[in-house]
Deep mutational scan, measured.
Amino acid sequence: SPQLSSEIENLMSQGYSYQDIQKALVIAQNNIEMAKNILREFVSIS
Results as ranks from 00 to 15, higher is better:
I21S: 06
I38Y: 15
L39H: 03
S17V: 11
L4A: 03
V26E: 10
Q19S: 12
Q29S: 09
M34E: 10
S46G: 10
I21A: 07
N37P: 09
L39C: 05
N31S: 07
I21F: 00
K36T: 07
V43L: 11
S17G: 08
Y16L: 02
I8L: 05
Q3F: 10
K23D: 13
M12T: 07
S5V: 09
G15R: 03
Y16M: 00
M12E: 04
G15N: 02
K23G: 12
E41L: 00
Y16H: 12
E7L: 08
E41N: 11
A35E: 05
N30K: 04
V26T: 13
S5K: 13
S44P: 12
I38R: 14
Y16S: 05
K23R: 14
L25V: 06
A35Q: 03
N37W: 05
L4D: 08
N37S: 10
Q19N: 06
E33G: 13
S1W: 02
D20Y: 01
N30S: 07
E7V: 12
S1I: 03
N30P: 06
E7Q: 07
S13G: 10
S1K: 02
I45V: 13
N31H: 04
L11C: 04
N37D: 11
S13A: 14
Y16V: 04
E9L: 08
V26K: 13
N31Y: 02
Y18I: 12
S44F: 08
V43F: 15
L11A: 00
V43K: 15
Y16N: 02
N10I: 04
Q14M: 14
D20T: 06
N10V: 11
S1P: 02
N30D: 11
I45N: 15
E7H: 09
Q19G: 12
Q14V: 08
S1T: 05
D20M: 04
L11F: 03
Y18L: 11
A24Q: 03
S5N: 14
L25P: 01
E9W: 06
L25N: 02
Y16P: 03
S1L: 03
Q3R: 14
G15V: 01
S13Q: 11
S6Q: 12
M12R: 13
I21W: 00
S44D: 15
S5P: 06
S13D: 09
S1Q: 09
Y18G: 10
L4R: 08
I32F: 06
Q14G: 04
R40L: 07
G15C: 00
I32E: 07
I8V: 10
V26D: 14
Y16I: 01
I45Y: 12
N10A: 10
E7A: 11
E33D: 10
G15L: 01
Y18A: 08
Q3N: 14
I8W: 03
K36M: 02
S17E: 15
Q19F: 01
E33T: 08
I32M: 10
I45Q: 12
K23N: 14
K23I: 06
I38P: 06
S1N: 12
S6E: 13
K36P: 06
L39S: 04
L39F: 00
A24Y: 03
K36H: 03
Q29R: 12
L25M: 08
I21N: 00
E41W: 04
V26A: 11
E9M: 14
N10P: 03
I32V: 06
L4W: 05
D20S: 11
V26S: 10
P2S: 11
E9H: 11
Q14S: 11
K36A: 07
L11I: 09
E33I: 09
M12K: 12
R40F: 06
N31E: 11
A24S: 09
V43N: 15
E9G: 12
F42S: 13
S6K: 13
Q22K: 15
S1A: 07
I27R: 15
L25C: 03
A28I: 01
S44Y: 07
D20C: 09
Q29N: 09
